[in-house]
Amino acid sequence: MEILIEHLGDFGDGLLLTVELAALALVGALVIGVLVAALRVSPVPVLRAAGTAYVQILQNVPLLVWLVLAVFALPDIGVLADLFTTSAVVLALYQGAYMAEAVRSGINAVPVGQGEAARALGLTFSQSLLNVVLPQALRTVVQPLGTLAIMTIMNTAMAAAVGVVELTATANRVNLAEAQPIWIFVSAGLLYMALSVVVGLVTGATERKAAILR
């Protein structure tokens, strides 16, 4: 127990970095998710294909491989970014593929008549997507998006492998000094759990607020 109190500062810093990483990745993933889902339902075949390719490529290579690739390959092609930024971007791109699938399932759940009515009024495809279909689609997938948000938080631990000293890396460092793995990693685990409880509460509240009367 004393060890934890002794290293409170370290854990605080690690937790903060995890939260920052998760928040950036989540915002990015949501934007990418909506854009890629829009591509996947576009009437233009090339755009649809691009959306599908994005999801397939990102989902079919492990996150850790993407992270390592980005950390080593980006500097080679002249893109210099710090480890934190690189990790946040890779996480956003990776989780974005999953978000896209969730958003697309929401789009498919909106009755076709909604989009038809919008287009029959003279809205373009993108106007009807933006003003009519997506607002309804997102409301139906709050729960799956919440689950993906939790997955994103958990996946920030992968950034430890490429040198970002977030919560897991912090636990590892403290353990190297103190050799008390159970206490230290159980504490880290509880902190992750606390984050996911917060996300769960936010998800539940959002879902209640966003429910559409049908």
């Binding site: 009755p111 008549g113 909604q114 038809e116 009515a117 919008a118 607002p135 309804q136 559409i212």
Partner: peptide
């Protein structure tokens, strides 16, 4: 203008 059998008012 078009009016549909199932109304298709925007639910949200």
């Amino acid at each position: 203008g078009m009016v549909f059998q199932s109304f298709n008012l925007f639910q949200h």
